[in-house]
């Protein structure tokens, strides 16, 4: 397997697969989060189920973490090879003449998303893991006996700095997905008469989902 992953094409295939997996996860994450706008109760129930279900916690979550780590590590591995492939750069380089900004700067949009993810993990994932697995409290209830998930989200978006930070993170996510989502199909060998329609769908997805996340952050900040 490691020999197979030495090839540029196999690496890009693996990159595409892990990226697509994360895109699907993102949709699931969004549909749970958006319930927080409509019903605190529904959001609490979803959150409690996701946080305590054995399959989600012990099967899906480790796969997700592996997918995230793999995507980032492979991204940097590919970038190192790319940089080595041109030791002396051009005195004048007109990249915008033949390619989009998003496609040329995936490493930077990805890097910002990595920083954002670390902050996001510290904000939400680490406290949850601490309560559930360190303190051993699997009830999901706060001191008053109510589910804590919705309140945690609302309190988190009270400060303007965190709201802005998340909005910036989602903008980078959109920029990354606009190229990455459609590019993953090319890396896996899919380029035919349906590609144009697929690009329309992937671009819409890349814009609508991050916009939705921005809406959720702003909604909780403003309310």
């Amino acid at each position: 397997m490691s020999g197979f992953l030495n090839s540029t094409i196999a690496r890009k295939f693996a990159m595409a697969l892990s990226g697509l997996f994360l895109v699907i996860f993102l949709a699931q994450h969004f549909f749970i989060n958006i319930t927080s706008v409509f019903s605190a109760e529904t959001f609490n129930e979803f959150s409690h189920f996701m946080g305590t279900n054995g399959f989600v916690q012990y099967v899906a979550q480790p796969i997700l973490i592996f997918g995230v780590v793999f995507h980032f590590v492979m991204g940097f591995v590919l970038e190192i090879k790319n940089r080595n492939a041109r030791k002396i750069s051009y005195a004048r380089y007109n990249g915008s003449a033949n390619s989009s900004w998003m496609s040329r700067n995936m490493i930077y949009s990805g890097g910002f998303i990595l920083i954002f993810l670390v902050i996001h993990f510290i904000d939400f994932w680490v406290p949850e893991i601490n309560i559930k697995f360190i303190e051993g409290d699997m009830s999901g209830l706060d001191a008053a006996g109510n589910y804590r998930y919705y309140d945690h989200v609302v309190h988190s978006f009270e400060p303007i700095w965190r709201t802005v930070l998340y909005i910036v993170g989602f903008v980078f996510l959109a920029l990354h997905l606009i190229h990455g989502f459609q590019s993953s199909f090319q890396s896996m060998g899919f380029n035919n008469k349906y590609s144009k329609a697929l690009k329309g769908f992937t671009t819409a997805y890349a814009i609508i989902i991050p916009l939705g996340f921005i809406f959720i952050a702003l909604y909780h900040h403003l309310n």
């Binding site: 540029t8 890009k12 033949n98 390619s99 040329r104 590019s183």
Partner: peptide, 20 residues
Amino acid sequence: VRQMDEEGFGNCSNTGACEI
């Protein structure tokens, strides 16, 4: 592809610059 990799060319980022 093996020879291409051994020569030290970079990976494809699907920017489409080559086609243009």
